[in-house]
Design a protein around this nucleic acid. Structure first.
Length: 153
DNA sequence: GCCAACGTTGGC
DNA sequence: GCCAACGTTGGC
């Protein structure tokens, strides 16, 4: 059982979209390190912090879980998709993703709040210059965040 | 919109 | 394999 933080731009796909859908493929990842986390290291049941990025209120917006093993991202084969990759073929897919299932929407733990906790100082997502859209979370960080999400900011 | 930081591309 | 140029991310 591992834990992850996964970024999504709410204008593309928000926590409310996942509440509506229940389960959703985490399509569109086009970074090898993030792909490798999904393809090689994620397992069904892993915990996910759903993070809103590139928006007015960046931060953790909900809890989800990994709901499938990794499989080929269909958008890489679709010439009409913004995620189309002409170098990928169904025989040799390049991009993989897992499905993610909602657990619950939470209050927003803003990026500023996250930075205010010494317990979270080592989180990968808070590292200077980090751009990786999927980062590991330690069990300690996970417990701390879930505990804090049940209290006011 | 700015811009720092980082990943990818491609010429050599 | 190096590395400059370019494109993207993402907070502010």
């Amino acid at each position: 059982m591992r834990y992850w933080l996964m970024k999504s731009e709410p204008s593309e796909y928000s926590i409310d979209d996942l509440v509506r859908d229940g389960v959703s493929p985490w399509f569109g990842v086009r970074n090898y390190q993030a792909r490798n986390y999904m393809r090689n290291e994620m397992a069904i049941g892993d915990g996910v912090l759903f993070y809103h990025s590139s928006c007015a209120q960046p931060g953790i917006a909900g809890i989800a879980e990994v709901a499938s093993r990794a499989y080929a991202d269909a958008t890489q084969f679709d010439p009409n998709s913004k995620y189309y990759d002409p170098k990928a073929t169904p025989e040799r897919p390049r991009w993989f993703h897992v499905d993610v299932r909602i657990c619950r929407k939470t209050r927003l733990m803003s990026l500023a709040e996250m930075r205010s906790y010494p317990e979270l100082a080592d989180m990968r997502v808070l590292a200077r210059g980090n751009r990786l859209s999927i980062t590991p979370v330690t069990p300690q960080q996970w417990r701390f965040i879930l505990d804090r999400l049940d209290r006011p900011a």
